[in-house]
C-alpha cells in the first residue's frame, strides 16, 4: 500500500486461541489482512477455518489473543468492552444470518434501536428510520413486526438497521444463509448498491461461491490462515468452490 491514509481494517499477525495446553485451538493463526475503504470483501472457507472468528474480531465483538488489530490506524485490541461498544455503535453495522431482529418490536422500532443508543432525538430517529426502510424497499411496512414479514423482508429490516447507524463498514455474516436464491439475489444487489453508491465498505462471510461472486475481492481461510486473497473473477469463485 503506497496510500498515505491507513487501511480501514488492518490485522497484523492476529491470532485467536481458545483453550489452553493440549485442548488449545488456534482459530486464527498469525493472520495479516488489510481492507480499505470502499471495498466489498467476501470471506470464504470451510467450517472451523476461522472465518467467523475473524469476523467477530473485525466487528469488535471479540479481541485477538495475540497480534494487533487496527481500525483506521488505531489499535483496538486493548480497548475496554465499553469502548468497543462505542466503536460498534458509531462505525459498524451488523447483518446476521438469523436476522436477529427484536421479535416483538416493529420494523421501525428495530431500525431506531442503534439511534436510541446514539442518543438521537425521537423526531430525527423516526425520520431516519423511515428513509432507511425506504432505501431497502420497505416503505409502508414500518409497523409490521418481524413475524409478519418474509425472511427476505426481515433481512432488509436488518440491513436498514445497520444503515441507520450511519456506519463505515457493514459486516454481513452469511446474510443469505436462511434465504432462497431469488431473495438472496435481491439482498446482494442491495448490498452491492450500498457499496457502490454510498461507498460503504462491506465484509461478508459466506460459504456459497455464487454469493461470493457479488463481491469485488475474495479471501479464503483454511485452518486459521488465509490461503487465497484475490479479486473476484469467474475462475476465482470456481476454484473457491473446489476449495470449500
Amino acid at each position: 500500500m503506497v496510500d498515505a491514509t491507513p487501511p480501514l481494517i488492518e490485522f497484523r499477525k492476529v491470532s485467536r486461541i481458545y483453550g489452553t495446553g493440549e485442548a488449545e485451538v488456534r482459530a486464527l493463526d498469525g493472520v495479516d489482512l488489510q481492507i480499505c475503504r470502499g471495498e466489498f470483501v467476501a470471506i470464504m472457507g470451510p467450517s472451523g477455518s476461522g472465518k467467523s472468528t475473524a469476523m467477530n474480531i473485525i466487528g469488535c465483538l471479540d479481541r485477538p489473543s495475540a497480534g494487533d488489530y487496527l481500525f483506521e490506524g488505531t489499535p483496538v485490541q486493548d480497548l475496554s468492552p465499553d469502548a468497543l461498544a462505542l466503536l460498534r455503535r458509531h462505525y459498524l453495522g451488523f447483518v446476521f444470518q438469523g436476522f436477529n431482529l427484536l421479535p416483538r418490536s416493529s420494523a421501525q422500532e428495530n431500525v431506531e434501536l442503534p439511534m436510541i443508543y446514539k442518543g438521537l432525538p425521537a423526531a430525527e430517529r423516526i425520520a431516519r428510520a423511515r428513509s432507511a426502510l425506504a432505501k431497502v424497499g420497505l416503505d409502508g411496512r414500518e409497523h409490521h413486526q418481524p413475524s409478519q414479514l418474509s425472511g427476505g423482508q426481515q433481512q432488509r429490516v436488518a440491513i436498514a438497521r445497520a444503515l441507520a447507524g450511519d456506519p463505515m463498514v457493514i459486516l454481513a455474516d452469511e446474510p443469505t444463509g436462511n434465504l432462497d436464491s431469488h431473495r438472496s439475489h435481491e439482498i446482494l444487489l442491495l448490498l452491492q448498491e450500498l457499496n457502490r453508491k454510498d461507498g460503504i465498505t462491506i465484509v461478508m462471510v459466506t460459504h456459497e461461491p455464487d454469493i461470493a461472486a457479488y463481491a469485488k475481492r475474495l479471501v479464503i481461510f483454511t485452518d486459521g490462515k488465509i490461503v487465497k486473497d484475490e479479486p473476484v473473477t469467474a475462475a476465482a469463485t470456481e476454484t473457491a468452490a473446489e476449495a470449500v
Binding site: L86, R89, L113, P114, Y117
Partner: peptide, 13 residues
C-alpha cells in the same frame, strides 16, 4: 439473544 443484539449494535454494558 435480545441482550446480544443490543450489545452488537452498540449498547454499552
Amino acid at each position: 439473544r435480545e441482550i446480544g443484539i443490543r450489545l452488537a449494535i452498540g449498547a454499552t454494558g
